[in-house]
């Protein structure tokens, strides 16, 4: 158990067992957090109400295991299936109005910098494709234009899954959904390319089928956002209900979509500044550790 996350001794006997497990056996302040903690350490997600076999919950699990310092992270969510999980995670989080998430994260990041000038506070935006690309595109792009230093993660399921399958900007051309029976007439919005041109220092597009890759990308994105500039990750989390798959077929769907030449083949863009930061990361990490221990002791 770390120093930052503690339980008041007076409350130990009345707290639920899940909470005690989290405090005693969680991965807060573990310097080498990652998916390898699965199965032995208590994860930062409790039981949630997403569907059985939902690939989004796989992605959520991998992300929560990978964020570098959960005890000093604030996540900003938006309306959608992700908002069913946010109340169940053991990280500070804010639910924003639909589409407002990057604007709220901007204010939050600036306020945290004023309130805690000596501490490293990460802000991570996690929203669906409707919030990121359709309704919140204005806020998303403006935050990148202003080079706001936080990570934006988009769970791309290519439609509005929570409300029954309406057409979204990230839906692929020609796709038929339950509430888009004519088929989409336009191309999928190329948001990774737009992000790169809008000033993001790190952009990745991927699926959640490889935990080690998700871990690497999330850690890089959060650390670059901390020091260099905005970062954007687009993760394919297919809605198995809306594309007509069984609960156990979500993983195969992700693997099929990341094959060479497919639309979610892993691609990343790293700006020269971010690359030089990554190259010197090992030394900076040591310095950060020293600074963090100096601040708390």
């Amino acid at each position: 158990m770390g120093k930052k996350i503690q339980i008041n001794k007076e409350f130990v006997d009345i707290m639920p067992q899940d909470y005690l497990d989290l405090v005693e056996n969680g991965t807060f302040e573990s310097p080498n957090r990652g998916w390898k903690d699965f199965g032995t350490a208590t994860e930062l997600i409790a039981e949630h109400s997403l569907c059985a076999g939902c690939p989004e919950s796989i992605a959520f699990r991998h992300i929560m295991a990978s964020i570098p310092n959960p005890e000093d992270t604030v996540m900003v969510g938006s309306t959608g299936c992700t908002s069913l999980v946010f109340p169940m995670i053991a990280v500070h989080n804010i639910h924003s109005l639909f589409g407002n998430q990057n604007a709220i994260a901007t204010g939050l990041k600036r306020a945290l910098a004023v309130r805690f000038p000596d501490k490293v506070k990460d802000v991570i935006v996690l929203a669906g494709d409707g919030a990121t690309v359709d309704i919140g595109l204005d806020m998303t792009l403006q935050s990148w234009f202003r080079k706001e230093r936080f990570t934006t993660i988009c769970f791309d399921n290519e439609l509005y899954a929570n409300t029954g399958g309406q057409e979204s900007g990230l839906m692929q051309k020609g796709f038929l959904a339950k509430m888009a029976p004519v088929g989409k007439k336009f191309e999928k919005v190329r948001l990774p390319e737009i992000a790169r041109e809008s000033g993001c220092d790190y952009v990745a597009i991927m699926t959640a089928s490889k935990p080690s890759l998700v871990e690497k990308v999330i850690k890089q994105a959060v650390l670059i956002a901390r020091e260099v500039g905005p970062t954007y990750i687009q993760i394919y989390t297919p809605c198995i209900l809306e594309i007509g798959k069984q609960s156990m077929e979500g993983l195969q769907e992700m693997r099929t979509s990341e094959a060479p030449g497919e639309r979610f083949k892993f691609r990343e863009f790293i700006s020269p500044e971010a690359q030089s930061f990554l190259d010197g990361l090992a030394e900076k990490k040591k310095a950060e550790k020293l600074a963090a221990t100096g601040a708390t002791s």
């Binding site: 930062l44 039981e47 997403l50 076999g53 919950s57 796989i58 993983l251």
Partner: peptide
Amino acid sequence: CIMYCPEANCIQM
């Protein structure tokens, strides 16, 4: 199985 289970803390070692 522990890696790919969508539920947190569901399959334990």
